[in-house]
Computed example of a mutant assay.
Amino acid sequence: MTGFTPQELEAARDRVIPDVVAGGLSVLFCGINPGLMSAATGRHFARPGNRFWPVLHLSGFTPRLLRPEEQEELLAYGLGITNVVARATARADELSDEEFREGGRQLTARVERVRPRWLAVVGITAYRTAFGERKAVIGPQERTIGGTRIWALPNPSGLNAHWTLEAMAEEFGRLRERAGVPDRRG
């Protein structure tokens, strides 16, 4: 189904994939770190079963369901993608707290350079660890990076099963509305 052998996926460990960024973004989505499938393909949220792309569409950020290989199209909608930690792993729990904190410092510098209106971190635990905000909850955060507001979103991984597709789309939709992004579904 994926077209990659276990050995090919393992060979993608520690790879870094390029961000999808530009100046003037409405929302910069920030994953935890690339998985091995993403690293093998060079595409964000590429693992089958990851709900990022469906949720992005269901919440109105995109006019249709995009595939990972169409990630560059996000820029036309004022959207981008980056990660807290750049290196690929099989699971996020392979990352140390120090990697998350260093990732938070690097992410802050990236946001200061690109200056999106909103930074949307998909994964509350990653946000808490990267920014030292242990009591943060899903939703808009008090912290800002310069003029950039921050919103913590649920992790769209299929492993985060207690968040349904519909509930995630609703939360992403709240961000879309607050960010002033039009509903592009149609």
Rank of each mutant, 00 (worst) to 15 (best):
residue 1 M to I: 00
residue 1 M to N: 11
residue 2 T to Q: 11
residue 3 G to A: 02
residue 5 T to S: 14
residue 6 P to C: 10
residue 10 E to H: 11
residue 13 R to P: 00
residue 14 D to F: 12
residue 15 R to Y: 06
residue 17 I to Y: 01
residue 18 P to T: 05
residue 19 D to K: 10
residue 20 V to S: 06
residue 22 A to P: 01
residue 22 A to G: 10
residue 22 A to D: 14
residue 23 G to D: 15
residue 25 L to A: 08
residue 27 V to D: 05
residue 27 V to H: 01
residue 27 V to I: 13
residue 29 F to E: 02
residue 30 C to G: 08
residue 30 C to Q: 08
residue 31 G to H: 00
residue 32 I to S: 10
residue 41 T to H: 05
residue 42 G to I: 05
residue 44 H to D: 12
residue 46 A to N: 01
residue 46 A to M: 06
residue 50 N to C: 11
residue 54 P to Q: 03
residue 55 V to D: 14
residue 64 R to A: 14
residue 65 L to S: 08
residue 67 R to M: 15
residue 68 P to L: 03
residue 69 E to Q: 13
residue 70 E to R: 04
residue 73 E to K: 08
residue 73 E to M: 01
residue 75 L to M: 11
residue 75 L to K: 08
residue 78 G to E: 11
residue 79 L to V: 04
residue 79 L to A: 04
residue 80 G to K: 08
residue 81 I to G: 04
residue 82 T to L: 06
residue 84 V to I: 15
residue 86 A to M: 05
residue 89 T to A: 09
residue 89 T to K: 13
residue 92 A to N: 13
residue 92 A to G: 12
residue 93 D to I: 07
residue 93 D to N: 14
residue 94 E to L: 07
residue 94 E to R: 15
residue 97 D to F: 14
residue 97 D to I: 11
residue 98 E to F: 12
residue 98 E to L: 13
residue 99 E to V: 02
residue 102 E to R: 15
residue 103 G to T: 09
residue 104 G to Y: 02
residue 107 L to F: 00
residue 107 L to K: 04
residue 107 L to D: 02
residue 109 A to R: 15
residue 110 R to Q: 14
residue 110 R to M: 12
residue 111 V to Q: 01
residue 111 V to F: 00
residue 113 R to W: 03
residue 116 P to D: 06
residue 116 P to C: 11
residue 117 R to D: 14
residue 119 L to T: 11
residue 121 V to P: 02
residue 123 G to W: 01
residue 124 I to Q: 11
residue 127 Y to E: 04
residue 132 G to S: 10
residue 132 G to D: 11
residue 133 E to K: 07
residue 134 R to P: 12
residue 134 R to V: 02
residue 135 K to M: 01
residue 136 A to G: 05
residue 138 I to H: 03
residue 139 G to A: 02
residue 139 G to N: 00
residue 140 P to K: 09
residue 140 P to I: 00
residue 144 T to Q: 14
residue 144 T to C: 05
residue 146 G to F: 05
residue 146 G to S: 08
residue 149 R to A: 09
residue 149 R to M: 00
residue 150 I to H: 08
residue 150 I to V: 15
residue 153 L to D: 05
residue 153 L to Y: 02
residue 154 P to K: 07
residue 155 N to T: 05
residue 155 N to M: 11
residue 157 S to C: 09
residue 158 G to R: 12
residue 160 N to A: 14
residue 162 H to V: 06
residue 162 H to I: 04
residue 165 L to E: 09
residue 166 E to L: 02
residue 167 A to S: 12
residue 170 E to K: 13
residue 170 E to V: 04
residue 171 E to T: 13
residue 171 E to H: 03
residue 172 F to P: 05
residue 174 R to K: 12
residue 176 R to H: 08
residue 177 E to F: 12
residue 180 G to D: 05
residue 181 V to S: 02
residue 181 V to C: 07
residue 181 V to M: 07
residue 182 P to C: 08
residue 182 P to S: 08
residue 183 D to C: 03
